[in-house]
Design a protein around this nucleic acid. Structure first.
Lengths: 216, 216
DNA sequence: ATGGGGTAAATGTGATCACAAATTGCGGCA
DNA sequence: TGCCGCAATTTGTGATCACATTTACCCCAT
């Protein structure tokens, strides 16, 4: 457990492991909104000292995945309704653009892959597995957007996903989804048809569907 | 110079001071693209140890204001043409939306303030003061967008500004601007007229004007 | 003069520690 | 029984250190 014997392994920098671990858990809704975290707790969990834990947290705070209280306490954000709507609007803005850019580059192989992911989504819905649903759903979107060749835009979209992560889980499990990936099928149909206006509408609808839950 | 005597002043946390200082310098183009920084150097400059310097850098890296080499070296990013175009497209997307949301809330007092800022912009152009120009220009946009009441969107826009900061300075000083704030006047005119389509076009044009420099 | 190799300096990473502030929990008082 | 205040614990912050790696520099051989 002594300090300076850990070889500086290029591929598995401690703070990066912690960052990726926490990021994945937050983005996929494995941590509830308002959940408090501590640097020492994170360090213990990942078997590192406070230093890498602090750097990972700092990075996630910068991305809006975590919030700091006035006294520096760390927790997942509890989003207001206004904030949720704003983030959904951002998703719509950015993801419609990404989908539009991906459209001319979307060949059959991509559509096949999207359909495969989509069956995973349906499976997760059937099994009432929220985390798996969120993971597969985001995987669907990311796979499409990667074709847009727009890394900065994709990074922004993922940052929004990250901010919504804890809340999404709560929202989804509040209203039991009976909805199979209906909107995803609209997206796939528009992709196959090369229908850009239809694709924009389909993506916008899919991305803002969660807002309908807020009306209740 | 000893360590644990610095009182933990709530308002001026060391890592936050360093962060804000670096952020401002980067966003306004005071640091050239590709400029290398060191943790010890930053620490010395702000009279703090490596720890707060590291946290500030980590945060800025997360926002895309700084990039890390494979060996962990820190420098301002050197953006490719593709990346510049992508970030300009993001500016257009987000800022058009922000302007559109600000429009119904834009009263005369705001327009007066924007006009005052605009004269600062003109002054900076006349004095060939690039940094002051960038600062006043972004101030113009931020003042307008604050009326949109959309903090998450504004944060995203500012993150894009941050990523473009060092490059903007280089771009602007490469081609001497003779252009007074012409596009800004279009924005103001649309605001006064309550002309939303015109405002969208004016903002989009203003934001992507820098792309014209890339054609050379 | 130029290119290469080897040593010295510089640099990022992670652990540990001291400290101050905040939070928690317990006990006493009303 | 409920509430307030004080003490113990928890927690974040910043400094310092050891170490591995990368980078820079200089000298020598060709």
């Amino acid at each position: 457990m002594q300090a300076p014997l850990k070889t500086t392994d290029q591929t598995t920098l401690a703070h990066d492991r912690v960052y990726r671990g926490l990021r994945s858990r937050i983005m996929h809704g494995e941590i509830a909104p308002g959940q408090a975290l501590t640097l020492r707790g994170i360090g213990a969990e990942y078997e590192v000292s406070m230093t890498p834990a602090r750097e990972a947290v700092r990075r996630l705070v910068a991305e809006g995945a975590l919030t700091l209280s006035a006294s520096g306490r760390v927790s997942t954000p509890e989003l207001s309704t206004d904030r949720i709507e704003e983030l959904a609007a951002l998703r719509a803005l950015i993801e419609v653009e990404l989908a539009s850019r991906a459209l001319p580059r979307a060949h059959m192989a991509l559509i096949d892959r999207l359909q495969a992911i989509n069956s995973t989504v349906a499976e997760a819905v059937a099994h009432r597995d929220d985390v798996r649903y969120i993971r597969a759903n985001l995987d669907f979107h990311r796979t499409l957007y990667l074709r847009a060749q727009a890394p900065a835009m994709l990074a922004m979209a993922e940052t929004v996903w990250l901010q919504l992560g804890p809340t999404m889980r709560t929202l989804y499990s509040k209203l039991r989804r009976s909805d199979p990936p209906q909107f995803h099928r609209h997206i796939l149909a528009a992709l196959k048809a090369g229908d850009e206006p239809g694709l924009r509408i389909a993506v916008r609808t899919d991305v803002t569907q969660g807002l309908r839950l807020l009306a209740s």
